[in-house]
Structures are given as C-alpha cells and as structure tokens.
C-alpha cells in the first residue's frame, strides 16, 4: 500500500510499523521502526506521558524522513 501511494501520488510516504523486514519486503522507501505490533506509535504500558513522548519522537522522526533525500530504501531509527 505504501509503495503504491508513493507511486500514484509522487509524494514521500513514511511507513511506521514494527516489523521492519516486512516493510523492506513490500518495498517501502522511508521506514521508521515502531514500538510493537498492537501499538506502533505509542508505549501505553509505560503510562500516558511516556506513551505520548514516544509518539512524538516517532512522528518527528517520520517528518525528518520525509524531508530527507534518499536513493534507496532507508531506515530512520528513533534514538
């Protein structure tokens, strides 16, 4: 889906998901590894503050990916 949106729209699509190998396999170009399958952009078990902090970091990382020129599939990992 990621690949086809990018192809059809000609705009960068950043995928945030947990299982990086699948994203590589399906041809996503800008990849941000998420936290866990049931909560890719959050960590609710750690409480609301930590949860939101992780979400913010991941989204900022995704926005960074969106503004970065790349020539091949690239992983943008949250520190």
């Amino acid at each position: 889906m990621t690949r086809e949106i990018e192809k059809a729209a000609g705009i960068p699509v950043v995928q945030i998901a947990t299982i990086v190998p699948i994203m590589l396999t399906v041809g996503s170009n800008r990849i941000v590894p998420g936290v866990a399958i049931p909560h890719p952009v959050g960590d609710p078990a750690k409480g609301p503050e930590a949860d939101k902090k992780v979400r913010r970091e991941l989204l900022l990382k995704a926005l960074e990916a969106m503004t970065t020129p790349i020539s091949e599939q690239t992983l943008f990992e949250r520190k």
């Binding site: 889906m1 990621t2 086809e4 990018e6 705009i11 699509v13 950043v14 890719p40 952009v41 969106m66």
Partner: peptide
Amino acid sequence: GREIGAQLKEAGVDGVILTS
C-alpha cells in the same frame, strides 16, 4: 494504495505518514 495515492495527489497533499 493506487486509489488513495491518486486522491491525495488530487487534494494537493505533500506527504504521508502510514502506520501499520
């Protein structure tokens, strides 16, 4: 992906964050 991509292009969207 194709359909959503076409609609986003039409709407002038500049970038997408897709969560899975």
